[in-house]
Nucleic acid binder design. Structure first.
Lengths: 159, 159
DNA sequence: GATAAAAAGTTATAATATAACAATTATTAC
DNA sequence: GTAATAATTGTTATATTATAACTTTTTATC
């Protein structure tokens, strides 16, 4: 049921799933899922496109919160630490995690045209990284795998 | 002869190799390897650590060039387009390419402690990315694979 | 309810990157 | 060789992204 570039899907379901999941994970870890944190997560989940921190500020203001940068960065940091949000470094942007709690390696397929991004888990990828690292005597802590290209929708539209 | 976290190597050789290579690639492509471009490449190659654009500015000034940000960003952009330099997005930094001209997928192993970074080529990684992408109907254009962790030197020093 | 801890508000600023236009240098055509 | 053209670099200003430091408010604990 995860998003796979197919344009037809019930996105409200994506959002509510993400929020429910967050609620659960916060509870498990004894962390507070405050209004701002929830709002920021919801705003990040407004689409399957990575979104910049500053783009969230106006909406946060509309919702009646303080909308200075630290507000949104603090919420994002919190969400990242719980694995609910990922940073897409090459875009200076953030996206909701579609596999929260999973240990498996994942990568982001990011369309350079429409900006849609899909997170894909892959054991093959994980083992490739593990092999490369162990051969170098390197101990992996974090992985950032961002693949930029064209999504199937944009490829189809090209013809 | 590529750097692999082993601390003992003739780094002057790394630098001169990189500059020679750049010279050759520029010639092949009919591009001008100007003084600034050469200097910036040399400065980026001063170590095997990703370096920020602003860190280069003082050295550029010392060398008697204009040292406003556009100077260095333009040179970096040029070098990136020729595949001589890579951006490490997660650090907002740049590093010299150790496999210029190669088509193979590569990833960066970045030590979170000493900041040393090694670029490793891997067919296994390439095929994992190819598989994941093709399954999604996604056409790959660029890959950013950044693995953060601990290098063998820092692991050894830990005990 | 008092106390301590956590979170959010607030102000200021740091760090990174680019836009826009002018001046210079190199290349090409004649 | 010189004029015209293109490429590169200089320069000024500013946009974008992110964090530091301190205050106030809210929540949890005793």
């Amino acid at each position: 049921m995860t998003f796979t570039f197919q344009s037809k899907h019930d996105h409200h379901h994506c959002i509510s799933d993400a929020l429910d999941n967050a609620e659960k994970i916060c509870a498990e870890r004894g962390q507070r899922f405050t209004k701002i944190r929830k709002l920021v997560l919801e705003l990040i989940w407004q689409s399957h496109r990575p979104i910049g921190a500053y783009q969230l500020l106006p909406e946060i203001k509309k919702a009646g919160f303080n909308s200075a940068p630290p507000t949104v960065y603090r919420a994002i940091e919190f969400l990242q630490e719980l694995g609910l949000v990922h940073q897409i470094s090459s875009l200076n942007a953030f996206i909701g995690c579609t596999h929260p709690g999973h240990q498996c390696s994942s990568c982001f397929l990011i369309c350079g045209q429409c900006s849609l991004a899909v997170e894909v888990e892959s054991d093959l990828l994980g083992s490739a990284i593990a092999k490369v690292s162990s051969e170098m005597g390197f101990k992996v802590e974090r992985e950032h795998v961002e693949i930029v290209g064209k999504c199937p929708n944009c490829l189809k539209a090209e013809v």
